[in-house]
Nucleic acid binder design. Structure first.
Lengths: 341, 341
DNA sequence: TACCCAAATGTGAACGTACACATTTCGCCG
DNA sequence: CGGCGAAATGTGTACGTTCACATTTGGGTA
């Protein structure tokens, strides 16, 4: 049917060379901005490239140079959208500034998927890898899979595996809990995140430590899944327990659901019950009441992760752990103890 | 320093072959699950692969096969986190079911960046590309850049460029506006999204059409940026204009900010003013009051996009446009007209 | 005008893999 | 026990690029 008898092969460097009347090496020089080229030669080649719609074959380039200008990001989670998203953007910006692009491979957190995603990144000759994998088990898999490129872990449970950048979740949870205690609350409940999440575990530990340091009664945290919907259901259940005047939620979304449940039942926040969240997502300032919460500087996490990689600390040095301090953001959802539920 | 004098080259297929006492082709067969292999041979090769930590070089594979089992996703936006995120997950799941992985390239929406990101995807020999680029100008760039692989555009302004999958934003905006009008509102204001966004424009058009069809007075929409913060500021400004009893916000976050501003000023929703959002993000059900909004099925968008690609409709057929119907979700933020602001 | 050096351009090889095809091995039947 | 065919394994080549080195070109100087 086609008047062209040849197969629809993409043009390569030699096609361009032939068309422009130069050698393929000259074309290569044009592509790589070699200085020693007559301007008119460069011009002609560029024109042919445009005419033919030629695009360098990245696979061939990568094969021969084993360089790709790509930094891989392994994302082994779906939840925590805001934090992950923000970190990704920060990484992307920092990478761009340094002349790199980023390739994101997302995957479920089972062994096979993580391995495949890693292969995908390494296969693109990613020169460094950032691992965003907030679930503990992923790090055990990683321990068994040498990477051969510099890498940084975010929020790792295994500080021995490699360089780690993280917001100090434990400290953040202590800040939140201490704030409530300092307001005079003696009955503080914690709604935790999924227990296989490193951050959830650390936040719970921070809460427990602070409560026991204050010699208050520790009560078993409610285990949740970090959604607003769960917060709402948890809130409704809590209505049956009149044993608290403050709640520390492991993230802002859960707090939102909780606020909903309380409001629906006529429990006033903070007059009757105080609520603290975690993350300080942009919406938290507009919840009702505006939410007191713990701010995590996700941008800083992304930036530092990339800085570590670019400093080529991938050498055999001992793993570095950078902890970023969280910050208490005071709004209107907390106050002195009231009547409770 | 190193007792090993050889350079730290990654092992290749020939290293494995030598170590296992077979030819490199046999190793290749093991890697590609060839049927004609003695089980013990396969076993031995696999063991050597494990010992050496060998990983197939994806670049070489791609170079020779020009296949990659990768579907590229170009994401040229940062806002609209929830929608984009959900679509990405749906694409990823559908891709995995079909035996593909996805590679995500994010970029700013300027010409150079988009082109680079495309090159990055094509360079990985992506066999198909999904373009998530809600800003109009990106599509003009795309029109000038032939892709040579099947591709699908999401929310495209240019239906002529290729297959398009989108939620019918125009219809969604009409649903929202009509709902308010049917409740008896005659003074409906629209808070729009950024005007270079295709969806924002379509929603505004839907609003304008519905209002003029009802022969109500059209008033100039407020132009915003889709954040809760903007919604809050817009809400405070609206307090000076006592010329409306209902507001249609172009997304849920803006609506949240608006609710905040109104509540702060003692304006009751929906008693005094009704508010409708757009998107139905999971939190919308827990806002106060729970938000009446327009649901977009982002999962469906992702699924259909991939289905289109997998059906290899990339052939020269006329571009297909698949419109997904949005849906009105009634909650508590709307009611019969009240006193207004 | 011959010569030399730098600038400009060209040639051969290699990267690691998969495909097509060639060769060897092996069990089984006549 | 020879031979035959299928199963198992090996050899040559191509993919598209960059690097190292070789060669040509050109302008200025002795």
């Amino acid at each position: 049917m086609n008047t062209e008898s040849s197969p629809p092969r993409a043009p390569n460097i030699r096609d361009v060379a032939r068309e422009a009347g130069v050698s393929y090496q000259t074309v290569s020089r044009v592509l790589n901005d070699s200085p020693n080229l007559r301007p008119e030669t460069r011009e002609r080649v560029l024109q042919v490239i445009d005419e033919l719609g030629y695009r360098p074959n990245q696979a061939a380039r990568t094969l021969v140079t084993s360089k790709s200008n790509v930094i891989g990001v392994l994302v082994a989670t779906r939840a925590a959208a805001y934090g992950v998203q923000t970190i990704l953007y920060a990484i992307e910006d920092a990478a761009r500034d340094a002349g790199y692009r980023i390739a994101i491979a997302t995957c479920p957190s089972d062994e096979k998927s993580v391995r495949e995603a890693l292969d995908q990144l390494i296969g693109q000759a990613a020169e460094a890898v950032v691992v965003v994998a907030p679930q503990a088990r992923v790090f055990d898999l990683l321990a068994a899979t040498p990477l051969n490129v510099p890498f940084v872990l975010l929020d790792s449970a295994r500080r021995d595996l490699g360089h780690t950048v993280a917001v100090d979740q434990f400290e953040g949870a202590r800040l939140a809990t201490r704030h409530l205690i300092e307001l005079g609350h003696t009955q503080v409940i914690h709604i935790a995140g999924p227990q296989d999440w490193i951050e959830a575990e650390a936040r719970m530990q921070g809460y427990l430590r602070e409560v026991s340091d204050a010699e208050l009664m520790v009560r078993p945290p409610v285990l949740g899944d970090w959604t607003a919907e769960f917060g709402y259901r948890a809130g409704r259940e809590l209505l049956n327990r009149a044993d608290f005047t403050a709640v520390f939620c492991s993230n802002d979304l859960t707090a939102l659901g909780l606020l909903h449940a309380f409001r629906e039942s006529g429990i006033r926040v903070p007059a009757d019950v105080s609520v603290v969240g975690f993350d300080d997502i942009p919406e938290a300032a507009h919840y009702w009441p505006p939410l007191t919460t713990i701010r995590q500087d996700f941008n800083e996490v992304g930036r530092r992760a990339l800085a570590l990689l670019l400093a080529e600390l991938g050498s055999g040095d001992d793993p570095i752990t950078e902890l970023i301090r969280p910050q208490l953001v005071l709004r209107s959802s907390t106050g002195a103890p009231g009547s409770g539920v």
